Amino acid sequence: MAWLQRLFGMEKPQDAQVNASASDSQTAPERVGLNGEYDESGLAKRVALAFDQDSNLTDVDTLWVAQTGGTVVLKGTVPSQDILSQMVSVAEGVNGATSVNTDQVTVG
């Protein structure tokens, strides 16, 4: 199952973008949704979309993505440190992400 489907119960919207531009200049980068609209969980959704678009990352059904402001929060279990490192790298590349917190991730 895809990241967006599992985490947010949604299919990828048409024209969804990982680094969508805000439809207005007032929206903080972490609150920009998949199509540029305001979304409280915009950053987390765009990170999930980035995970879906990375062919090296399969859906790890024991990991969740959340956000606190501009911080991407990963929670759960990943199979290896390499997978976690790749996920952190992908998440850091999403516009609006100021940091990635992995304190709640277990490897193994």
Rank of each mutant, 00 (worst) to 15 (best):
G33E: 03
T68P: 04
D24R: 14
G33T: 04
D52T: 05
V60W: 04
S41Y: 11
M10Y: 06
Q26T: 11
S41V: 06
Q17H: 12
A44I: 03
T71G: 06
E37P: 01
D103L: 14
G96W: 03
T77V: 14
Q17R: 14
V32Y: 09
L84V: 01
P79E: 14
A91S: 13
T62W: 08
G69Q: 14
K12M: 07
N101R: 15
I83W: 02
V47F: 00
A50F: 00
S85L: 02
A44Q: 09
S23P: 00
G96M: 02
S21N: 04
D59H: 03
Q17A: 15
T68I: 08
V90Q: 04
G36F: 10
D54I: 00
Q14H: 01
T68Q: 14
D82G: 15
N56I: 01
P13G: 15
Y38G: 05
R6Q: 04
Q14A: 14
A48V: 03
Q67I: 07
Q5A: 13
M87W: 09
G70N: 10
A22L: 04
Q26V: 10
N35Y: 01
A22M: 08
L49I: 00
S99I: 05
D39G: 02
E11G: 15
T106L: 05
N95W: 01
L4P: 04
G69K: 13
V72Q: 09
S55W: 06
D15K: 13
D39C: 05
S25G: 09
A20M: 06
L7I: 11
A2M: 14
K75W: 01
L57R: 04
R46K: 00
E30N: 11
T98F: 07
D103Y: 13
E37T: 01
D103C: 12
D54A: 01
V90K: 05
S89K: 13
A22N: 06
L4Y: 05
R31E: 09
L63N: 03
L34D: 05
M1P: 13
G42Y: 03
A28Y: 09
R46S: 00
P29T: 04
G93S: 13
Q5G: 04
S55N: 08
L4R: 07
L57E: 08
S99K: 07
K45R: 15
D15L: 12
L7P: 10
A28T: 08
V72T: 15
K75L: 09
D103F: 12
S41G: 12
Q104C: 05
G69D: 12
N95A: 10
Q86K: 14
A22P: 07
N56Q: 14
L49P: 01
K12C: 11
T58F: 11
D54P: 00
Y38S: 10
A44D: 03
L57Y: 05
N101L: 06
E37R: 09
G36K: 08
E40V: 05
A44N: 10
L84K: 02
S41E: 11
N19E: 04
V78L: 14
N35G: 02
Q26I: 07
Y38K: 13
S80G: 08
D61G: 05
A66V: 00
E37D: 07
N56S: 13
E92H: 03
G9L: 15
A16Q: 02
E40G: 03
